[in-house]
Computed example of a mutant assay.
Amino acid sequence: MIHNKVKSYFEDNYLKNPILIKAPGRINLIGEHTDYNQGLVLPASIEKGIYFAVSGNKENNIQIESFLTQPEKIVFQLNGEHKAFESFWGNYFKAIIEILIAKNYPLKGMNCVFGGDIPIGSGLSSSAALCCGFIYAITQVSDKEISREDIALIAQAAEHKIGLNCGLMDQYAVLFGKKGNAFFLDCNDLSHKYIPINLDGYSWVLINSNIKHNLAVDSEYNKRRVSCENIVKQVQAYRPQVKSLRDISKDDLVKVKNKVNEIDIQRAKYIIEENERVLQMMQELTAGDAIAVGNVLKDGHWAMSTEYEITTSELDHLVKIGEELDGVLGSRMMGGGFGGCTINLIETKSLDENIKALLRSYKNKTGIDAEYYHLAIDDGVKVFE
């Protein structure tokens, strides 16, 4: 188990018994790209995660070592200075330390070893787990609490500093998740509640397309955000109280269609209808209607494919394959887009044969070996016993 490796490496190299912290990855049942439009989302934290083994030191620095894809040791001075580094994760930690210094947070010397089993670039929000877990680890060593709400804001600000203008869904899901429950979040006022996932006889599975994405490098994510903002500006001309797409209806889209380009209208329509799908998914989960849940998944995928245009041909193939299999109730691409995983609702009694059929057909169509992960819904960031 990766957490045992992280802990053992720390003990062997730093000769201390560390605090071990788990920051989970997250899935999103429905509600993609709605968060930065002050909309509705329905994520859940999962069993896979990133583990941080930490303890204080007297070196007046923060020493960090990774078990991820780019093993490296980085040393940050408590004033924020550091030597050049190569690993992508160093940019996240650099941004976090700079933000905490600007907030006059009382940093203390710390040794940190981390690693995890979240597949990087698969749409499971490894970056939010990385940021939220690291900030929480700092609080455990510095003995000065930061509320989970503020940890989310700091983690979001760190992602913004490195180029991804994300909303708060991922951070809130990672921090506030609850075992066995989906996490409904209203991104307008950050109110939230838990929705029990009651689908006896059915299992959740992720299929990793092995098409990697890097949203901070690929500006397509930010282009879609600009489209949404364009619509808001036009509607504000006659309804100044409007603050986001959350406040806009399809009637508004009709009124401004001659003042913006067609693609902006198309993307805004997707966001409005995706909010509706979140409410529908909550209703179907509460009722325990697995067939209806599967239909919401499928509707959400093809809207992402044809309207928001954030899927790939490989991900579309995975969903089409599932639609032809008995026992696969529904699936959709999950995450920011342009790669990653599909989330699939599959009848448990036919689980193994359907997974094999999905992987086999995907390989035949694309030449790519996909991977699968059974999903277990787990708690948010915590000290791991």
Rank of each mutant, 00 (worst) to 15 (best):
N188G: 04
N261E: 15
E65A: 12
V293A: 05
I27T: 00
A158Q: 08
E273W: 07
Q236K: 14
Q171K: 10
T312M: 11
L15Q: 11
S350V: 15
G340R: 00
D252K: 07
I265R: 03
W89C: 06
I120P: 00
E145L: 14
P240M: 11
K179W: 07
A102C: 11
I50N: 03
I21N: 06
V141A: 13
D251T: 10
L78N: 06
K58A: 13
I272H: 00
I151Q: 15
V319H: 06
L285K: 00
E274Q: 07
A152H: 01
E149H: 15
N275H: 05
E72A: 14
L199A: 06
K7L: 12
V242I: 14
R225M: 07
N57K: 09
D369P: 00
D170L: 03
S127H: 02
D316V: 01
E385W: 04
D143E: 14
I101T: 10
N214Q: 12
S219M: 11
F85Q: 05
A129M: 03
V260M: 12
K269W: 09
M1T: 13
M334H: 01
Q156I: 00
R26L: 05
G340Q: 00
G123R: 02
E324L: 08
V293R: 02
C166W: 04
I248M: 11
Q63F: 10
H317A: 14
K382E: 13
R332I: 09
L359K: 14
Y14W: 07
R246A: 11
G31S: 04
L175P: 12
G327W: 05
S87R: 06
E273D: 13
N210M: 09
E149Q: 15
G294A: 05
L185F: 08
L68T: 10
L358Q: 02
G116A: 04
I154E: 06
G201W: 06
H33V: 09
A216Q: 05
N17E: 15
A155G: 03
A44S: 09
K5T: 08
Q38V: 02
A376Y: 12
Y202F: 14
H3D: 09
M1W: 04
I271V: 15
S45K: 01
N261W: 12
Y36N: 06
A84K: 13
L375Y: 02
G163Y: 10
G25F: 00
L206N: 01
E11N: 09
I154M: 12
N91P: 00
A237V: 06
